[in-house]
Amino acid sequence: MHSNKWFNILVPIISVIIGLLSGAIIMLVSGYNPIQGYVALFNGAFGDLYFFGETIRQTTPYILTGLAIAFAFRAGLFNIGAEGQVIVGWLAAVWIGTSMEAPMYIHLPLALFVAALAGAFWGFIPGLLKARLGVHEVIVTIMMNYIALYSANAIIRRVLTDSADKTETIASSASLASEWLEGLTYFSRMHYGIMIALFAAVIMWFIIERTNIGYELKSVGYNQHASKYAGMSVKRNIVLAMVISGAFAGLAGSMEGLGTYGNMTVSSGFSNIGFDGIAVALLGANTAIGVVLAAFLFGALKVGALNMPTHAGVPNELVDIIIALIIFFVASSYIIRWIILRFKKEEK
């Protein structure tokens, strides 16, 4: 038991270190100073309170999409649709935020709730199709991503605005932005959403680890036959898992809509928040606390990387490669696991 636990912590840490090392090799080979590069990366993520604020800002939606995907994974479902659920959640939040007036204590919770609801609905459809007709959720959710993207674009152009490229800015009563936090961090876009994200992580942990629902979801994820035998409704649990997963992703969208941007722009491509959430969930071993830590790492990498070209002269393309390498090693922790076991064996 004991050695196992340390093993589980050791593997991701070693993954990150190997990722950083291989990034360093790439920089060396290309004629850049890796120490300078990583100092720039570190400073770009934690260098001062501004960057720290931006890192937290970036971490916030990652936590939520990570939770969304981890939650579905626990029930044996691969929710690639988090991306689409982010988009509908974002749109719904901005819609509520721009279209009505209400005091903050109603407006903000309502916007968050509707965003979660929209994401949940976007997860409900593939969940239902999977439960009722056995259609694979990966295919449906990928398609749903495109539907979300292009529908959102059309709604922004035709419904929310008169063929403009972005919506109006949300009312301040629906905004998560905080002058206090912005002031504290020299105008970073850090907003109160981080508290919602951390709270969501606690909720996820509680549902999965402490409730009947979690017990059933995990059971269905591991073994549908035994779950049926145990008297659980497999179909109901599949739908429920996708709905809750979608709600988390929808909330992630509202973080962008109500916090970071305060509006929504017509977009030609995906935000990648949902897709990055897959890696976050995997790195976090599908646990709530793991997701929070992994999201923090991803947020730091994403924000810190922007600093590498200007402060260390490392070209953008190379930065992308280095970040991808770090993520690659992190995601392929299976290999690391295998290597460690191999070493252990040799020792004996």
Partner: peptide
């Protein structure tokens, strides 16, 4: 690389 980078880049 995407719109979320504009403000951080300018601020930096």
């Amino acid at each position: 690389s995407d719109e979320s980078d504009y403000l951080p880049n300018l601020t930096r």
